[in-house]
C-alpha cells in the first residue's frame, strides 16, 4: 500500500522508505533465523556439534568446509549439476514460454483441453510416475547402446541425458507463462497484425521483450527445481560419473553416521550457486512493463 501512495504522491524517496525497510528487515531476520544456526553449525568443530551450539561458535573452524570439499565426488557433482541445470534452464526459457504465450493469446480449437491435460500431469505424485519414467530412460532409443527400438543397452541410465530427461519442459512453467501473458493487453498484437507482422514476430518483438520478469522467473524456478531434485537422480544415477550435488551431500546424512557440521557446510556450498542465480535475476522481476514498455 505504502508503495502505491509513495509512487502516487511522488514523495521524496527516503522519507517514505524507512518503514518499509524496517518491516522487511524484521521479516528477513525471522526468515533467516534457521540459517543462522545452520551457518553456526557449519563453523562449529564436528565433535562439539549440537552439544554447544551458539550464535557464534566458541572456536570457529573451517574444518567442516574442508571435509565437505574433500568428499571424493563433490567436484564431479558440481559439474554434472551445472550442465544438467543449465540445459534445463535454456529449454525451459523457450519451449514452455512459447506454449504459454500461445495458450494465452493464440487460442485454437481445443486449446483449453490441451492446456488442462498438460497441466494436470503436475498433480500426480512422483512416487507413481517414477518407475515408468525410469523404464523410458532405460529404453530410450539410440542411447547407451540401445537400438532404434530402445533395447539392447542401458539407455539413458547413469548419464547426463538421463538426469535431465524429466526436466526439459516444466508443465508449471507453461501454466506460469500463460498466466503472465494473460495479464498483458492483446491490443498490441491486434495492431501489429494489421501492420502485417507475423505471429512469431509479434511474440518475439512485442511480447517477449515485455516478459523479462517472466523469463527471470522461469529461469530461477527451473534452476532451483532441477538443482535441488533428489529422488530422480537417486534412481537414475548409478555411479559417480552421473552424481549430482544433492546426492553428494547425503554422504553426510548417512543413517547412523550424520556429520552435522560437514552436512551444513556442504549444504551452504551447494546452495550458493542457486542464490547467485537468484541474485542476478531478481532485478528482472521488477523491470519490464514498469519501465514504460507498454506505452510504445
Amino acid at each position: 500500500m505504502t508503495a502505491l501512495m509513495a509512487r502516487a504522491r511522488r514523495r521524496p524517496r527516503s522519507s517514505r522508505l524507512w518503514p518499509r525497510v524496517m518491516v522487511l528487515s524484521v521479516v528477513t531476520a525471522l526468515v533467516l533465523l534457521p540459517f543462522v544456526w545452520m551457518t553456526s553449525l557449519a563453523f562449529t568443530p564436528e565433535g562439539a556439534a549440537f552439544s554447544e551450539v551458539r550464535l557464534i561458535p566458541a572456536q570457529p573452524t573451517l574444518e567442516n568446509f574442508a571435509t565437505a570439499m574433500r568428499v571424493a565426488n563433490l567436484d564431479t557433482a558440481f559439474i554434472n549439476s551445472a550442465v544438467v541445470t543449465s540445459i534445463a534452464v535454456l529449454t525451459n526459457c523457450v519451449i514452455p514460454v512459447l506454449a504459454g504465450y500461445a495458450f494465452a493469446h493464440l487460442p485454437f480449437r481445443g486449446s483449453k483441453v490441451v492446456f488442462y491435460v498438460l497441466i494436470s500431469t503436475a498433480a500426480i505424485p512422483v512416487s507413481v510416475t517414477l518407475i515408468p519414467l525410469f523404464l523410458m530412460a532405460k529404453n530410450f532409443p539410440l542411447a547407451g547402446g540401445n537400438d532404434l527400438l530402445g533395447s539392447g543397452g542401458s539407455g539413458l541410465l547413469d548419464s547426463l541425458g538421463g538426469l535431465m530427461l524429466p526436466y526439459l519442459v516444466g508443465t508449471m512453467n507453461i501454466f506460469l507463462s500463460r498466466q503472465y501473458f494473460a495479464g498483458m493487453d492483446r491490443d498490441f498484437a491486434e495492431a501489429a497484425r494489421i501492420d502485417g507482422a507475423s505471429e512469431f514476430r509479434i511474440f518475439s518483438r512485442i511480447y517477449l521483450p515485455m516478459a523479462r520478469p517472466l523469463i527471470a522467473l522461469v529461469a530461477v524456478f527451473s534452476f532451483t527445481g532441477v538443482w535441488d531434485d533428489f529422488l530422480w537422480p537417486l534412481v537414475v544415477s548409478t555411479s559417480e560419473r552421473s552424481t549430482t550435488v544433492q546426492l553428494a551431500i547425503t554422504t553426510f546424512a548417512s543413517t547412523g553416521n550424520v556429520k552435522y557440521g560437514a552436512l551444513m557446510a556442504a549444504t551452504i556450498l551447494v546452495s550458493i550457486p542457486v542464490l547467485v542465480v537468484f541474485l542476478v535475476n531478481q532485478r528482472g522481476f521488477i523491470s519490464g512493463l514498469s519501465e514504460g514498455g507498454l506505452k510504445g
Binding site: T91, I95, G153
Partner: peptide
C-alpha cells in the same frame, strides 16, 4: 528447440558400457 533437446538427450546418453 524440441528436436535439439531430443538430440541432446541422445548425445548425452551413457557411454556404451
Amino acid at each position: 528447440a524440441g528436436c535439439a533437446a531430443a538430440l541432446l538427450l541422445a548425445a548425452c546418453g551413457g557411454e556404451t558400457e
